[in-house]
Amino acid sequence: MTDQAPIALVTGASRGAGRGIAIALGRRGCTVYVTGRSQQAGDHALPGTIFDTARAVTEAGGKGVAVACDHSDDEQVAGLYSRILTDEGRIDLLVNNAAAIHDELTQAGEFWEKPLKLASLIDVGLRSGYVASWHAARAMAERGHGLIVFTSASGAAHYSLGPAYGAHKIGMDKMAFDMATDFRHAGVSVAAVSVWMGALLTDRLKAVIASDPIRFGHIEGHCETPEFTGDVIWHLYNDPDLADLSGRTLVGAGIARKYGLTDGGRVPPTAEELHGVEPLVFHSAVIR
C-alpha cells in the first residue's frame, strides 16, 4: 500500500496466533508493536511473553516493540496508541487478536454449566477489538491509508464451544463489514477484513489435544501454523485489489491459494472442505 516499511500492531501477541502473526510480519521488515499482559515467565500457565515475541520479531528481520497492555482497560489502550503515534507518526496495520480464552471453554458441558467468566470473551475479544479499531481508524482515516484485520474462525457460522465464543467470532466478522462500509462512505482508502483461521497448532491447542486425545486428536492433522495467518495478512496488505475485499470475511486457507501460499509446503484445508461451512454474506442495505 506504501513504499514505507509498515507500522503494525498485533494485539494479544504473547503467544499463539498473535505471536505467529507478529513474527511473520517481522520477516517482511515490519515494525511490530506487540501487546499482552504476560511480561515474565509465570504470568500465564502457557509459555510466552510480549518481550519474547518482540525479540523474535526483531530476530526475524523486523523491529519488535513490546507494550504491556490490558485490552479491557480503555485508558491503557489509549496510552498504547499515543505511544505508537508519538514514536512512529502513523499506524498502517492493526491485527485484532486479543481474546480472553479460558481453559474451561473447551470443557464438556452446556454454557450454563461452565463458569460465567467465559463471558469475558465478549469484553476482551469483541469489545476490545472495537476499541482498538476506533483508535486505529482515526489515525488511518486522517492519512487515508491502512488495514484493520480481525482474526476470526468458522465458529462464526456454526456452533463451536458455546455462545460466548460464537458471539465473539460473528461479531468480529460483522464489525469488519460495518467498518468497511463507514470507510467507503467517508471516501478513505482504509480497509477492514475478518480472516477465518483454521485450528492453530499452538501450545494451548497442543495441551487441549493432550488432555483428551479421543475427542480432539483428529484436529492435529489439519492444523495451521500460527505464522500462516501472518503470511496471509501480509499479502492482503499488499494486494492491489484490497479495496474490493474490504468488508469481507475471508477464509485464510482459501485466500492463501489465490496468493500461491503454502504452510510450510502444506495446503491447509478450508472450513468448507472440512465442515461444509462458508462465511455468512451480510446484506448490502444501509440505514443511517
Results as ranks from 00 to 15, higher is better:
144 G>F: 03
156 A>L: 10
115 P>H: 00
170 I>V: 11
154 S>C: 05
147 L>I: 01
114 K>C: 09
120 S>G: 01
110 E>W: 08
126 L>T: 06
110 E>C: 11
106 T>K: 03
151 T>C: 09
96 N>I: 04
96 N>E: 05
124 V>W: 08
136 A>F: 12
123 D>R: 09
125 G>I: 00
136 A>G: 04
178 D>M: 03
181 T>A: 14
130 Y>Q: 09
188 V>L: 06
121 L>K: 09
127 R>F: 10
141 A>Q: 08
166 G>E: 10
113 E>V: 02
158 H>R: 13
99 A>M: 07
124 V>M: 03
161 L>T: 05
130 Y>H: 13
158 H>I: 14
186 A>Y: 11
167 A>G: 14
138 R>N: 15
97 N>E: 07
188 V>A: 04
150 F>S: 11
190 V>I: 01
156 A>V: 01
127 R>N: 14
129 G>D: 04
96 N>C: 14
174 K>H: 12
146 G>D: 09
123 D>V: 15
141 A>R: 09
176 A>R: 08
91 I>M: 11
162 G>F: 12
93 L>A: 06
159 Y>G: 10
111 F>N: 00
168 H>F: 15
179 M>A: 13
139 A>T: 02
116 L>G: 08
124 V>T: 13
115 P>W: 00
147 L>S: 08
177 F>M: 04
144 G>T: 02
155 G>A: 08
156 A>N: 05
91 I>N: 13
191 A>M: 04
102 H>Y: 15
114 K>I: 00
153 A>L: 00
172 M>C: 13
121 L>C: 03
139 A>W: 13
92 D>E: 05
106 T>V: 15
104 E>V: 00
135 H>M: 08
147 L>V: 01
121 L>E: 12
182 D>P: 03
159 Y>S: 12
173 D>I: 00
117 K>T: 04
92 D>H: 10
161 L>Q: 11
140 M>E: 07
123 D>N: 14
146 G>R: 01
121 L>V: 03
113 E>T: 09
92 D>T: 09
170 I>M: 09
187 G>N: 00
156 A>G: 13
117 K>W: 02
107 Q>A: 11
184 R>A: 11
147 L>P: 15
97 N>Q: 10
163 P>A: 01
183 F>S: 02
166 G>S: 10
99 A>I: 05
161 L>E: 15
102 H>A: 03
153 A>Q: 09
176 A>N: 07
125 G>P: 12
156 A>P: 07
140 M>H: 06
147 L>Y: 08
161 L>W: 13
154 S>K: 08
137 A>K: 11
